[in-house]
Design a protein around this nucleic acid. Structure first.
Length: 891
RNA sequence: GCCCGCGUAGCCCAACGGUAGAGGCAGGGGAUUUAAAAUCCUCAGAGUGCGGGUUCGAGUCCCGCCGCGGGCACCA
C-alpha cells in the first residue's frame, strides 16, 4: 500500500475536527501547559515557510505535552488591523474588513492544511468588535489611571500622503513612498505612559527564560542611566540651564554648554549679534527627522552655533559659552548638556571643530598614559580626579557622590535617573484600527449652530471624556472613503455624522485618530483564555488556571516593541488586579529566519566578470533597474548579479569561482526570501508536492531551531524518504527475532523526549531516522512499531494516525500517552573505550561497562599501536574517565 | 563604532573538555528496469575560518584577528 499524503492528510484533519480532538482540556487535576505562537498578520501573500517553522515547533510541543499528561491550551488568531488591508482597500475598492476576512480565511485554510493542533474554539480576531471592545476597555483603564494622555509632539507629517509617517518611512526628508516632502510638525497625539513602568519592565526581566539577546535588547531599549541634574546659572536674571550628566566628577572640565536646537531657552539666550545664525541653524535642525540627524553621524561632522551667552559653572564659577548643536537631543534628559571635551568623545569632536578649550580633569589611576586625539572616557575606581579644586585626588566614583552632595546642599544638583525609553505615541491617522473611545465637548460660536454643517466651533481637546464602558465597543463606522484627506485628524474626521453628536443640547466630537497595530497584540494571549466572554474581558477563574504563558514562540523582530508593549499592558492589568502574574511570558524562543536557497552569484560590469571581492554594497531593488545590482568598492560603475548554477562554479580554496574564469570569485550564500529576489518558497506548493508531514518534518530537520538556515528543496527528499520508511515499517511489516531492538527502542524514546523538550528537533528526527532504518533492515516487533508511530506523531501527525489505525487501534494516536522507557535498557553493557597516549588516539578497547581502570589499562597496554607509542618512554600518569576514555601520559 | 550569534566534508547540519560524524542532500560504484524515475545496497569524502594560550587531552575554554548574519548607534 503506497503512502499517499494527499489522501490521508485531509482524512485525519477532518476526523480531528469531527472529534474535537484538540479541544482545550480543562481538567484541573492535570498540570497546565499554555503554548502560544505569535499570531500572524494575515497578509495577502499568505503563509510563509517562516511561519511554518514556529508553528510546527509549538505544535510538536503541544502534542508532546498532551501525550505527557498535560492539559494544553494551544490557540491561534489574527492580528488583523493594519496598513496593508487599508492600502489594498484604497487601491482596489474593497473594504478593509472584507479584504481582511478573505485573507484570514486563506491563512486558516493554509494552517489547517498543515495539521496543526490548534483549538479553533479559542480563535480571536483583533478586528472583530467583540474583541476590540476589550482593547478599548483596556485603553479606558489606562486613561482613568492617567497612563493615557494627550500631548503635542513633533511628528513626521507628509501633507501629500495626508498622514504621519514613522521615522523608518522617511528618507532624506522625503517620504519613502511617493517621494513627497515631509516636515516635522507639532501634533496632538495620544500617548501611553510606558515610562512610568520603566524600572519594573527592566527589573522583571530577571528570572524569565528568554533568549539573552532579547533581554539585552530590552534592557538597552529601556536604557536606564543614573546620574544627576545640575543647574548652571546664566547671565540672564532668573534663567538657568539644567543639564543631565552621568559624569558629575568631570564638572571642572566643563568648558562649554550645549542646548538642543528646540530648547526653549535658546530664544532668550541668543544675543542680537547671533540671532540670524542661531535661527537659521535651529530651523534647519527642526526640519530634520530623527533619522537624518542620526545619518549626519555617518558624516562625523559636528555642527552648531554659539548663542552669544554664557553660563556659570556652579563648581568653580567659570564663565562657559552656551552653544546650540543638533548632537544634543531635545527628547532626552533635559535637552541640554555640560560639555566635557576631555572626557566625552562627542564633546571632544565638537570642541575640536570649533576650537573650544579642552581641560583634563580625570587621569588614569597610578599615572598611566592618556590616549591622544580622543577623549579619555574612563570612570569608576580606575580613574582619579585632577585639576578639580578640593576634589582633586578622589576617585571618579567618589567624586561623583561628593560633587553631587555638595551641589545638592546648595540646591543646584540632584541625583536623577534617565531612560532612553520614551512614552508610546499611540495615535494613528488611519481608518483600519481600533477607534479610541474618547470624545470632547464642542463649543459652538452660535447656540443653534451645527458642527456637522461646518458651523464655527471649537473642540475642547483639553477636556477628554471617556466613552462609558457599557457603550463599548465603539464601532468603526462604515465608510467607503478611507483615503487620507491631508488632515491630521485622519479619515474618520470626514464622517461628520459619526464624529459629532448631541447630548442634552450639547455638541460633542469623537476622537478621530485610531490605535496602532500593536494595540490588539498587547493582550490577545489573555483573550485566548476566554474568547467568547461577553461580560468580562476574561474570567478570573480561567486566568488563574492558565496564566502565564509557558512557552511563547515567534520571530526575533518582535524582541523589543511587541514584547515590551505587551509586558507594559500586562503590568497595568496586574496593578488593577485583573491578572495574577507579573509577567505574561515565562519562556520565549525565537525561530531562526528561513532563508532562500543557497545561490551562487557572479558579478559583471557590462559583459566583464568582476571578482566578488571588488563588489561593494548591494543596492535596494528598484523598478527602473530590473535585476540585482551592487556598487563597486572602487569606481562608480555598477555591477549586475548573474545567477550561476552549481555546474557553472567550482570550489577553489575558501570560496567558489566561475568554472570558465577561475580567477573570478563568486558569492555563495543564502539570502532572505524576498519577492524581488524571486526566492520565496510557498508552503502550499510544498504540501501539494510532498505533503504536510514532510514539510513539517523538513522544517524541524533543517537545522537548529533558533539559527537562521537556508531552504534546500533537494534536501526535502531526505524527509520524504524517512516518512516513507515509517510507512513501510507499518504497512509492509517484517518481523524480527525476539525483542532485538529493545535497547535501541528505549534509547530512542528517551532521546526523542529529551530533544523535544530542549528544542533540538533536528536531532530528535535524526534519532528517529536511525531507529526506523534499523527496524526496516532488521525487522520489528509490535512494540517497535507502536513506539515508532507514537514518537513520530508530533512531527508527522497524519502519517502517525494512519499507521496507528493500521496497527489495529480505534483511538486516535494524538490521544495516547507518551511511551515510557526503562532507564536500565538505555545503557550499554559493552563499551568501546578510546585509548590515547599523551592525548593522541592510539586505538580502542572493548570492555564491560563496569570495567575498572586496571582492566582497561591492561587491555590498552597490549595494543600494538600503544606499545609502539610507549616504546622508550616512561609512563608518568594515567587518566581514566570511567566509561569514557583512557589516556596514558608518557615522557 | 558597540553588543549578540555563527564559521565543522561540495552543501545543510551533529558532536556532557574525551574515538571529529548522529542524520540528511549531492557525488562514485552496484542491484532492480527495455530505459528513466523511484527504491535498495555500498563507497569515498573534512582535521573543525586564521594566529596564540590553558589542559593529560580543545571543534568545544581563554586572548587577538578575519568573514557572515542580526541588533543598536551622537541617550550626555
Amino acid at each position: 500500500m503506497p503512502y499517499t499524503p494527499r489522501e490521508i492528510e485531509p482524512k485525519w484533519q477532518s476526523r480531528w475536527k469531527a472529534e474535537r480532538a484538540f479541544a482545550t482540556d480543562q481538567d484541573a487535576s492535570k498540570p497546565k501547559y499554555y503554548v502560544l505562537d505569535m499570531f500572524p498578520y494575515p497578509s495577502g501573500a499568505g503563509l510563509h515557510v517562516g511561519h511554518c517553522e514556529g508553528y510546527t515547533a509549538t505544535d510538536v510541543l503541544a502534542r508532546y505535552k498532551r501525550a505527557k499528561g498535560f492539559r494544553v491550551l494551544h490557540p491561534m488568531g489574527w492580528d488583523a488591523f493594519g496598513l496593508p488591508a487599508e492600502d489594498f482597500a484604497i487601491k482596489h475598492g474593497v473594504h478593509p474588513h472584507d479584504r481582511t476576512q478573505e485573507t484570514i480565511a486563506n491563512f486558516k485554510k493554509q494552517i489547517n492544511s498543515l495539521g496543526f493542533s490548534y483549538d479553533w474554539e479559542h480563535e480571536v480576531d483583533t478586528t472583530s468588535p467583540e474583541y476590540y471592545r476589550w482593547t478599548q476597555w483596556i485603553f479606558l483603564q489606562l486613561f482613568h489611571k492617567g497612563l493615557a494622555f494627550q500631548d503635542e509632539i513633533a511628528v513626521n507629517w507628509c501633507a501629500a500622503l495626508g498622514t504621519v509617517l514613522a521615522n523608518e518611512e522617511v528618507k532624506n526628508g522625503r517620504s519613502e513612498r511617493g517621494d513627497h516632502p515631509v516636515e516635522r510638525v507639532m501634533l496632538r497625539q495620544w500617548m501611553l505612559k510606558i515610562t512610568a513602568y520603566a524600572d519594573r519592565l527592566l527589573d522583571d526581566l530577571e528570572g524569565l527564560d528568554w533568549p539573552t539577546s532579547t533581554m539585552v535588547m530590552q534592557r538597552e531599549w529601556i536604557g536606564r542611566s543614573e546620574g544627576a541634574e545640575i543647574t548652571f546659572a546664566t547671565e540672564l536674571e532668573g534663567e538657568s540651564i539644567t543639564v543631565f550628566t552621568t559624569r558629575p566628577d568631570t564638572l571642572f572640565g566643563a568648558t562649554y554648554m550645549v542646548l538642543a536646537p528646540e530648547h526653549p531657552l535658546v530664544e532668550k539666550l541668543t544675543t542680537a549679534a547671533q540671532r540670524d545664525e542661531v535661527q537659521r541653524y535651529a530651523h534647519s535642525a527642526k526640519n530634520k527627522s530623527d533619522r537624518e540627524r542620526q545619518e549626519a553621524l555617518g558624516a562625523k561632522k559636528k555642527t552648531g552655533v554659539f548663542t552669544g551667552s554664557y553660563a556659570i559653572n556652579p563648581v568653580n564659577g567659570a564663565k562657559v559659552p552656551v552653544w546650540i548643536a543638533d548632537y544634543v537631543l531635545w527628547g532626552y534628559g533635559t535637552g541640554a548638556i555640560m560639555a566635557v571635551p576631555a572626557h566625552d568623545q562627542r564633546d571632544y569632536e565638537f570642541a575640536q571643530a570649533f576650537s573650544l578649550p579642552i581641560v583634563q580633569v580625570i587621569a588614569p589611576k597610578g599615572g598611566g598614559s592618556m590616549p591622544e586625539g580622543e577623549a579619555y572616557e574612563v570612570s569608576g575606581d580606575d580613574a582619579v580626579m585632577v585639576n578639580s579644586g578640593s576634589f582633586t585626588g578622589l576617585s571618579s566614583a567618589e567624586g561623583k557622590k561628593k560633587i553631587v552632595g555638595e551641589l545638592a546642599s546648595k540646591g543646584v544638583a540632584k541625583p536623577t535617573v534617565n531612560y532612553k525609553l520614551r512614552d508610546w505615541v499611540f495615535s494613528r491617522q488611519r481608518y483600519w484600527g481600533e477607534p479610541i473611545p474618547i470624545y470632547f465637548p464642542v463649543e459652538m460660536e452660535r447656540a443653534d449652530g451645527d458642527p456637522r454643517k461646518g458651523d464655527a466651533h471649537k473642540i475642547r481637546y483639553d477636556q477628554p471624556i471617556a466613552v462609558r464602558e457599557a457603550d463599548l465597543p465603539l464601532r468603526l463606522p462604515p465608510t467607503t472613503d478611507f483615503k487620507p484627506s491631508g488632515d491630521p485628524l485622519g479619515p474618520l474626521a470626514k464622517l461628520q455624522d459619526w464624529r459629532f453628536f448631541q447630548q442634552d443640547g450639547q455638541w460633542f466630537a469623537r476622537e478621530t485618530n485610531t490605535m496602532p497595530q500593536w494595540a490588539g497584540s498587547c493582550w490577545y494571549y489573555l483573550r485566548f483564555l476566554d474568547p467568547k466572554n461577553g461580560e468580562h474581558i476574561f474570567s478570573s477563574d480561567l486566568e488563574n488556571r492558565w496564566m502565564n504563558v509557558d512557552l511563547y514562540v515567534g520571530g526575533a523582530e518582535h524582541a523589543v516593541l511587541h514584547l515590551l508593549y505587551a509586558r507594559f499592558w500586562h503590568k497595568v492589568l496586574y496593578d488593577l488586579g485583573h491578572v495574577t502574574t507579573k509577567e505574561p511570558f515565562a519562556k520565549l524562543r525565537h525561530q531562526g529566519m528561513v532563508l532562500g536557497e543557497v545561490e551562487y552569484t557572479g558579478w559583471k560590469v557590462d559583459s566583464d566578470w568582476i571578482t566578488a571581492k571588488d563588489v561593494g554594497e548591494e543596492l535596494d531593488p528598484s523598478e527602473e533597474r530590473p535585476g540585482i545590482w551592487a556598487t563597486l568598492k572602487k569606481g562608480s560603475a555598477l555591477a549586475q548579479a548573474v545567477k550561476l548554477s552549481e555546474t557553472q562554479v567550482k570550489k577553489a580554496g575558501e570560496g567558489f569561482v566561475v568554472s570558465e574564469a577561475p580567477s573570478i570569485l563568486v558569492d555563495a550564500r543564502a539570502h532572505k526570501m524576498s519577492k524581488s529576489r524571486g526566492n520565496v518558497i510557498n508552503p502550499d506548493d510544498v504540501v501539494a508536492e510532498h505533503g504536510a508531514d514532510a514539510l513539517r518534518g523538513y522544517e524541524m530537520f533543517m537545522g537548529d531551531f533558533e539559527q537562521a538556515k537556508p531552504w534546500d528543496t533537494r534536501a526535502i527528499k531526505g524527509i520524504t524518504r524517512f516518512v516513507n520508511n515509517v510507512w513501510m515499517v507499518v504497512f509492509e511489516p517484517k518481523d524480527c527475532e525476539g525483542d532485538a531492538h529493545a535497547k535501541l527502542r528505549h534509547k530512542t524514546i528517551k532521546l526523542v523526549g529529551e530533544r523535544i523538550e530542549t528544542f533540538k528537533f533536528n536531532t530528535a528526527l535524526s534519532a528517529l531516522m536511525e531507529y526506523v532504518s534499523a527496524l526496516q533492515s532488521k525487522g520489528a516487533t509490535k512494540a517497535d512499531r507502536e513506539a515508532l508511530v507514537q514518537l513520530v506523531a508530533p512531527f508527522a501527525p497524519h502519517l502517525a494516525e494512519e499507521c496507528w489505525e493500521a496497527l489495529g487501534h480505534k483511538e486516535l494516536v494524538c490521544k495516547q500517552p507518551w511511551p515510557s522507557y526503562d532507564e536500565a535498557l538505555t545503557i550499554d553493557d559493552v563499551l568501546v573505550i578510546p585509548v590515547q597516549v599523551s592525548g593522541k588516539m592510539r586505538g580502542t578497547v572493548e570492555v564491560a561497562r563496569d570495567a575498572t581502570e586496571e582492566q582497561v589499562k591492561a587491555l590498552a597496554m597490549a595494543l600494538d599501536n600503544v606499545q609502539k607509542a610507549l616504546e622508550g618512554k616512561t609512563l608518568v600518569k594515567v587518566i581514566w574517565v570511567p566509561a569514557k576514555m583512557l589516556n596514558l601520559v608518557v615522557k
